[in-house]
């Protein structure tokens, strides 16, 4: 049974997963670790993040599920180096990365495709920021890599199109391809499935999951959809409202299913949804007055 994170301690020790995940990647020391993260703005009396602590192993996909405005995006801004926390620590492979912006690829909630660049040019953007991109050989190599990424996400026919010509699902996939072009140790995806209908959602979930598994990428994912979180993740952190803390941690089916579609077909999926719903309801009733 999952133990709750004690806000006072600030550092989450290992919580037993809600669902046994026999294939969970293991590591001697955590790949990503945060300890007692706090963010408080001068204009507000209540901190946005209040003692967030967790560990993530290499190759894990971890979802963050919580109410709107609870501080999930603020947490991602801290992890990506865009925001310095008031206190606390963030370590990647044992080294502090607070304020550093070289270690994450961050997919924002609104995909942020640059409208004046076509799909290929958008995907190449992270490569253009590298110092060695001026070399024609590197440029050719990057272009080939971008085309392969676009093919992996089913976008080979849209290479020369501009974002205004793409559907919502295509934009999300193009933004994902651009994030993976960055080739960073940690991927942060803020609601990558927003605005997608059920079928497009399944399609993007499968493509994303396949890419993460095949390249053994470590990923934190914000989503409002419990089923998506269970289908695509190894673990799920259930967050409270402001100030944001991790109230419970449960397991997902990423370790036992080959992809999110198969996860949804497994007999334990329905049970997992039901039990997770009960937990979420308990959290809501317990902390609704917060």
């Amino acid at each position: 049974m999952a133990r709750t994170n004690d806000p006072g301690s600030g550092c989450l020790q290992t919580a037993a997963p809600f669902i046994t995940v026999p294939n969970l990647p293991s590591a001697v020391s955590p790949y990503l670790e945060t300890c007692d993260l706090r963010v408080k703005y001068e204009t507000s009396e209540t901190p946005v993040l209040d003692g967030i602590g967790f560990r993530v192993n290499e190759g894990e996909v971890v979802s963050l599920l919580g109410p709107s405005g609870c501080g999930k995006t603020t947490l991602f801004n801290v992890l990506s180096g865009l925001h310095i926390p008031t206190s606390g620590e963030v370590k990647l492979r044992g080294e502090s990365v607070i304020g550093s912006r070289q270690h994450t690829a961050y997919l924002f909630q609104d995909h942020s495709l640059l409208p004046w660049r076509n799909v290929l040019q958008n995907v190449l953007l992270p490569a253009e920021l590298e110092p060695d991109y001026r070399s024609p050989e590197i440029q050719a190599k990057c272009k080939q890599e971008a085309l392969e990424l676009l093919a992996a996400f089913g976008l080979e026919a849209t290479v020369r199109l501009y974002p205004a010509e793409l559907s919502g699902g295509m934009k999300q996939r193009a933004a994902l391809a651009r994030a993976f072009m960055a080739d960073r140790p940690l991927y942060l995806f803020d609601e990558p499935f927003t605005g997608l209908d059920f079928f497009r959602r399944l399609q993007v979930e499968k493509m994303l999951s396949n890419y993460l598994r095949s390249h053994r990428r470590t990923c934190l994912l914000i989503t409002h959809d419990l089923e998506t979180a269970l289908a695509i993740s190894h673990r799920i952190f259930l967050l409270s409202g402001t100030p944001c803390t991790i109230r419970k941690e449960i397991g997902g089916l990423a370790g036992v299913a080959s992809d999110p579609i198969e996860a949804r077909k497994r007999p334990e999926f329905e049970e997992a949804v039901k039990n997770a719903t009960v937990i979420l309801t308990d959290i809501f009733e317990t902390y609704a007055s917060d």
Partner: peptide, 23 residues
């Protein structure tokens, strides 16, 4: 969000200006 995108990738202010603000 476009500026934040490039900043999250480690671009400096001049690069942000050249690749985002001007276009």
């Amino acid at each position: 969000s476009s500026i934040a995108l490039l900043e999250s990738l480690g671009a400096n202010q001049f690069t942000v200006f050249r690749k985002i603000v001007i276009p």
